[in-house]
Design a protein around this nucleic acid. Sequence first.
DNA 1: AACTGTGAAGCCATTCACAGCT
DNA 2: AGCTGTGAATGGCTTCACAGTT
Lengths: 224, 224
Amino acid sequence: MEPGWDNSRRTLVPISTVKRLSLYLRLVEELAHTGQMTVSSSQLARGLSLTDAQVRKDLGYFGQLGRPGVGYAIADLAEKLREILGTNRISHVAVVGVGSLGRALLRYRGFETKGFHIAAAFDVSVSKVGRRFNGVVIHHLDDLPMVARRDEILLAILAVPADQAQSAAEIMCDSGIRGILNFAPVRLVVPEHVAVVPVDLAVQLEQLNFLIKSPLRAPRRRRT
Amino acid sequence: MEPGWDNSRRTLVPISTVKRLSLYLRLVEELAHTGQMTVSSSQLARGLSLTDAQVRKDLGYFGQLGRPGVGYAIADLAEKLREILGTNRISHVAVVGVGSLGRALLRYRGFETKGFHIAAAFDVSVSKVGRRFNGVVIHHLDDLPMVARRDEILLAILAVPADQAQSAAEIMCDSGIRGILNFAPVRLVVPEHVAVVPVDLAVQLEQLNFLIKSPLRAPRRRRT
DNA sequence: AACTGTGAAGCCATTCACAGCT
DNA sequence: AGCTGTGAATGGCTTCACAGTT
């Protein structure tokens, strides 16, 4: 069982495949710039430190995307991956919590290019509400239900202090939000139909710390 | 194989256990505040949505930490976990890239309480170098090798634009950095002895997007 | 010849189930 | 009785290996 994922929600496709999908898309988009027309599973594998068999298995879950003897058509594959990931249409995202992290996220340019539009921000501080940051209006958290429905916001980034995270999450769930990227160092309790992906920065540093300090297992063999 | 981890470095303990270790610590530290003296594997399991067997297996990798019929002594377990994770001593961390994300990280208060001290920041912009942000001196990236060695910095947070990430990473590796928390949307190529944990925000949003749009597999049964 | 798609095998992680300690 | 520690069983993901397509 994977920590960090809401395990009650599982897809037809292995979770681990899902995690790689965006990596495939990123690489394929890079390759598109090179003018190359097709790419083989082993090229993709090399670029992501995977095996060719795994690339084929992963892509195979979504139909017969490649042509034997040739490989995968880069443009088609990119389009298909965007479709699978749902980033062929723009998704509206809310940022909840306009502290320093929230502001950094509002300024982050990596979202728009990936099909995510930050449609609104929310906070409880009177001094922030009503203002704009980086072109995004800051609403009061109490207005989340209204704004989320009006602007069809299904995804939210939670960047409030730990002690306010659960209550903010509850408002989010009552607002029709279906997915939460959670930066608060707290395990959120949410209804069945809401997915949570935690991004706990301190936890990730702790894991790094463990990795660099502990003895190692023999590296796994990998085909070349 | 897990994406996002440098898979050539594997520990004696399953990677998946490592990922849960910090979650155990967080929960155990919360419990410490409640005055409770011991905790059972099933209590821990409930708090983290795991099974009791898994908690015992995980903790079992590090010796006989619990007492049959009683459970785990909370204070001892916390201390042991901190020891395992290496957060019983303070680790020095560098922030490389003082853009909006870097500044947000420099302001983030969650690190110090977990035993991580941000000892220095680095950037290439002349207007930033020499100044301080949130009490942390901003050095030129070229000084990283010197400062990292002098201040015993083994961990770094990489928060530069994608096109500068690889070259910055190389400087980091040449500076004795052993672990990199990578916020740049790029797969870093690093030597064997350096661990990388990627934190690609757009990728995580894409994964959320997939999770909320795709059909579901039946939830896995879980013992109560 | 090059490469995909996919059953089958292998491997790792989780869960079961129970012996043994308190 | 309550609970841990741990072999054995299970399940899921990865890798192998090859039949089949271009």
